[in-house]
Write a protein that binds this DNA or RNA. Structure first.
Lengths: 171, 171, 171, 171
DNA sequence: CATGAATGAGCTTTCATTCAT
DNA sequence: GATGAATGAAAGCTCATTCAT
């Protein structure tokens, strides 16, 4: 799964053949099919495993209500996560854009994301925002946009400085 | 090219066969190869044509120096462009994440983007920003993030309201 | 289709690879898939084509009512058919025994066979037989049994003499 | 062996994987290879075991000369055997049609069948038949044809009534 | 006696590409 | 200009078989 994640992330899902994965992992093609029903299933397992890893760290100590400090922390955490598991995020941004593949993950993705979006919306409501829903969606889009640019080019995209600017805008 | 753009955008590049394109366009497979060297070349032509279409509307009347009003207008224009040519943007977000394919377009993309990024950086310098480069990169990331979310789900992502919020943050 | 029929009949359906067929027919593997959706479809086309060929010669000049002479002629015709298109019959006896495959052809086979069985039953009814249905089924079984033995070993199974004996039993 | 017989008979030899057999029998794949050299050997053992079971009941009290009553009894016995061990007979009719596989069993099959065929031929000679060899072959073909039809569709093929008709024709 | 992880040859199928017409 | 029959490399996948445990 690690080898496959790396290859899927670096070269893409369709371009990466089962044979390539097997060779890179020093195992036989057949063995992959002892553990995964097919190529799509392998992708699915990798992606769901990654999602669990990422989002389980969000669940802690939240009653679903954010203070301002917690909101700032949320943004910081979200961006910090990018630095670990870059491969997962690369795969995430590849997959999210493919409608056919996206369908496979839409449901589980929403299970993770919708409570977070709701939490953000509540936060903006409490802050007296005029349009909390749009504010929440903007946050989501900004985090994805920054994530995407950072993942694409980690050396040149000074994420720490960008993070600070974002936070300044929300204090 | 239109048919291929639509299919590439909706289903993905690898999943779309030349045969499918030909059938959808009511022409023969062979005819495609009279006009394009190969599948990659077809993709390249489509993408470059799209890039030209999009970015030629930016070039107008700019000496490379933005006033505050022009900066606001730039953001508005950038987001308004999404509403036309959704197919192109879908393809754009698909391709941008694939390193192997991205290489094909990196150069021409940079030719369009780097003057814009420079212009933004200059703007933030003139505004007395502490970190103009990071500010410019943030703008780029926000526009891509919002674009991606809008393209993925145009009905639910209220782009007009999001646009207003962004602008408010920059006035 | 001819090459495939011969191979399917001689070696069996599963044992005959598409590659073998292509090589024996001096064409490429890919070409087969221009004309047939998959291996099963190839088999299906071959079998239905063969069925049509065989049974169209039965339809002539019958109002569905057999005289004794016509009944005798029917038996003779049925057995004479074996001598042409032996490959088809070999395939027929292979397929008829495979439940999974048989399902594919059951419907079209019944379309051909059930009027014939009905005709035979009527004949035996008119002859004053005690159990016309069983008589008809016996005829069917005898023709298949003789067909099978002849096809399996045409040199040793003296079909002409067997045919005469059968007819004698029914005069 | 019982599990494998059932699966081979119901689905076919090639379509039935060793893994399927092992799972259906609640044992491991490896265990099968402790008792049988390979898949073909498993088939061979099953088939020979079945042949022995079937034909050992024929050998009794026969000096090789049939009276008329014994001949009638032989037909009755042959058809009664179908009702037990349907799975074996299904396998028998599948295998008998595959030349490649048939080769494996031809010799042992002939060991059982040729004395029977000889016995039948002698019977018809003693009856003053014009063509005893063809008569014997016809009996063989009829028994196989009836067997095949019965095995294919035991519910609809009224074997008792068919049996009576056959016997009536030979009294 | 029993397991099942592991292998790899070989299968069906797809598809970009060519080329005679 | 335009076709589509034909190719063949390469993909995903299956499965008989082995073997360390």
């Amino acid at each position: 799964m690690n080898t496959a994640l790396k290859l899927f992330a670096e070269e893409g899902y369709y371009i990466t053949s089962i044979d390539k994965i097997a060779k890179a992992a020093n195992i036989s093609k057949g063995l992959i099919y002892n553990y995964f029903q097919n190529k799509e299933d392998l992708l699915s397992e990798i992606f769901h495993f990654g999602l669990d890893e990422i989002f389980k760290s969000f669940d802690q100590n939240h009653d679903g209500i954010l203070t301002k400090d917690e909101f700032i922390l949320f943004i910081e955490n979200s961006l910090d996560k990018l630095e670990n598991s870059r491969d997962f995020w690369k795969l995430y941004f590849i997959l999210i854009m493919k409608p056919m593949i996206y369908k496979m993950f839409e449901k589980s993705l929403n299970e993770y994301l919708s409570p977070i979006m709701q939490m953000l919306e509540n936060y903006f409501t409490n802050q007296g925002s005029e349009n909390p829903e749009a504010e929440a969606k903007l946050i989501g889009a900004i985090l994805d946009g920054v994530g995407m640019h950072y993942i694409l080019n980690p050396e040149n995209f000074k994420i720490k400085e960008v993070k600070e600017i974002i936070i300044k805008k929300y204090i």
